[in-house]
Design a protein around this nucleic acid. Structure first.
Lengths: 214, 214
DNA sequence: AGTCGGACATACTCACGGTACGTACTTTCA
DNA sequence: TGAAAGTACGTACCGTGAGTATGTCCGACT
């Protein structure tokens, strides 16, 4: 059965087809539950094509991972631009994230399989360029607007902790029986935390690096 | 009462040997990187023994996972009993957790491979009985000591968020170039968050469920 | 003393990731 | 313009490793 000559000419199309099918498979069945035979069959090609475009299963997953993360970050960023006040920006970003984290694809690829497949090292590298960068950005604006003294190292530490808190909040919302109700609770709880920071801000908080400080 | 059946004792020994070897392998090479052939060879038995004691690779991992988590929770709990004030308890528990999370075994088995292998569902079930229960306990004591009104549903939401924050903090410490220095920053950052809560507590915080509230 | 069942051992299957090699089509260049 | 080089796959195959089917030994109970 001679394959359609049309497909041969556009290799970018086959690569995208592979990525599309792989993304759907990884999202639905997870990394371990996805067979490359199924992927290539779904993309109407063979393993030769797959291994021509990707170094292996892990590399394929990494590309899918990056696409999912970038897409999510873009949407959160879009939902954030409107507000002017850093606190409002943080709040709208949180809301957008709580929406994103409810999608099965993001949960499966990024939160569930991501760390195990990529390893902590590569996982963090990937995050650094997308969602973590976003959280870092928002955190920095909030902290600068709140504290009198803000050390860059502390911004990093703070943003990572907040990122963990927000991720857990997202997981909580996503797995709740009533996600809408849980969203309210989560926003309330995080609101209390943020209010706590805000109160300290008005009291003249100084966020210095305890290591560098004399 | 006649002495313990000899048969059973030998059987228990082989099972423990399998668990020991498996724990070491999973901790060092991860779930996917661990071969059952290596495990049974290390335990001086064959696959027949393994599949007699465990339903499969995943079940074996789950037992290892439970052991690692229970061990960690026990150590944290032990480090916590001394202090009397809920805030101090929370602080010492945090410190103990930051130690635990720096161990490769815990990082690999629980944080990295856990969610992917067990799935979110079973992962949460396992957590519920150990570390999460601990965090929930501490959170409840702190909140009850702080707020005038505390809704149980909010305690759950709060503890999950705090758990995520602490986990991220642990990850941050574990992967830092200078873990000791990063520990100081993390404790400082989390201290600020806790102080924020404490200030609101003295101001008469009421932590009601926004869903149930009229 | 039989025999029943738990605790393994042995040998095998099969799915799946990865590789080696061949081939058609395209581009390059003398 | 025609041959050489390179691209973009297809085909056939291998090794590994999880899981299974079946046999067997031996302590325990009747």
């Amino acid at each position: 059965m001679p394959p359609a000559p049309l497909r041969r000419r556009y290799s970018a199309a086959t690569k995208r087809a592979l990525l599309d099918v792989a993304a759907a498979q990884f999202a639905e069945h997870g990394y371990a539950g996805t067979s490359l035979d199924v992927v290539v069959a779904g993309a109407q090609v063979t393993k030769g094509a797959l291994y021509h475009h990707f170094a292996g299963k892990q590399a394929l997953f990494e590309d899918v991972f990056a696409r999912v993360e970038e897409d999510a970050a873009a949407r959160i960023r879009a939902a954030m631009t409107s507000a002017g006040d850093p606190w409002d920006q943080a709040r709208s970003a949180l809301r957008a994230f709580l929406d994103v984290v409810r999608e099965p694809a993001y949960r499966r690829v990024v939160l569930q399989d991501g760390p195990a497949v990529l390893g902590h090292e590569r996982f963090r590298e990937q995050e650094e360029r997308t969602s973590r960068a976003l959280v870092h950005e928002v955190t920095e604006r909030v902290l600068v607007a709140s504290a009198e003294v803000v050390d860059p190292a502390m911004v990093d530490t703070f943003s990572r902790i907040l990122y963990g808190a927000v991720s857990a909040a997202g997981e909580q919302v996503a797995s709740a029986a009533d996600p809408t109700a849980e969203t309210l609770r989560v926003e309330c709880a995080l609101g209390v935390v943020l209010d706590g920071l805000r109160q300290q801000a008005t009291a003249g908080l100084r966020l210095t690096d305890p290591v560098a400080a004399p």
